[in-house]
Design a protein around this nucleic acid. Structure first.
Lengths: 155, 155
DNA sequence: ACAAACCCTCAAGCTGACTTGAGGGTCAAG
DNA sequence: CTTGACCCTCAAGTCAGCTTGAGGGTTTGT
């Protein structure tokens, strides 16, 4: 048999066909074989790669990073120093985030407990809890992206 | 004195003037007083609110949520049940994320240690670590947003 | 032979949080 | 009274990661 149609792959992975084509278009997936009439034909390998992509995304990797990792693994190579470096930076970022989140969590939980228990909480409770947080170099929402240029206006 | 010009506020907060106008346009900041010639005039209160916004963002709150919180704090009111609810959901989301991140961190650290130590790591190291991760309902990157519709194709 | 259910490409739209550009007014210093 | 550094509005562009639509070919079943 020629292999799976894009719809079969979609079904097996829980993605949509357009999404799979999109991954191909940005180079995260390689171009698959085509039938004589131009239909994409996939193997189980692609299904596995797509599942991998979903997990890596859930873990905070960008499609760009995932693409790099996949390229390496397709070449059967062991992570080169570049990817090792990437991994180290990820680890630091994740550690920082866990710390920030944990601090935040405790403050939030304390504040909520106050609200829940007594009905006369400190004025502007939620404000104080966030206002008391330290300033961070980078937002939590981002893992590892290049620092946004944030021009501090000079006059 | 009439108050700070938008550029002064920008300088004090590290934001840009367009960003501050943008916050106003989406209702996160209230409309400030205007000079006779139409210039925005701000007080120190706005500077504090903007610093608050930055911190809340870094902690994963969306501008919409921040807007709600600020409105409440401006009214000097105690969190109503709606915001209390919001806070509870945040707490759960934060807990989940800490858990996911911690699991991920340990896997990543283990894998990195392998790579760093021996120079003959398991084939496709990074793949295995991510591939071995559990599937998550929602990506780590999101705090509290509505679950993205991710149509699992039915035929 | 025809319809349903696939497949194709290319282009445009979406969300959130901004940035950038065009076109034009204002204000303080020299 | 002009110059330069501000300010204004409104529209459009940016980025990531997709989704949606238009317009058209293919394959499978009856």
């Amino acid at each position: 048999m020629l292999g799976l149609l894009i719809g079969d792959v979609a079904e097996r992975t829980g993605l949509t066909a357009p999404t799979i084509r999109y991954y191909e278009s940005i180079g995260v997936l390689p171009r698959p074989f085509r039938s004589t009439t131009g239909y994409r034909r996939y193997s189980e390998t692609t299904v596995e790669e797509l599942r991998f992509i979903k997990k890596a995304q859930a873990l905070g990797f960008s499609l760009d990073e995932i693409g790099e990792i996949l390229k390496l693994s397709r070449a059967g190579r062991t992570p080169c120093s570049h990817v090792l470096d990437l991994a180290h930076r990820h680890l630091r970022a994740v550690d920082d985030r866990i710390q920030q989140l944990t601090r935040f969590r405790d403050q939030l939980a304390t504040e909520i407990a106050k609200w829940d228990g007594q009905r006369q909480p400190t004025r502007q409770g939620l404000c104080q809890i966030i206002a008391g947080a330290e300033e961070h170099a980078s937002p939590i929402i981002q893992l590892d992206l290049a620092p946004r240029k944030r021009a501090s206006r000079r006059r």
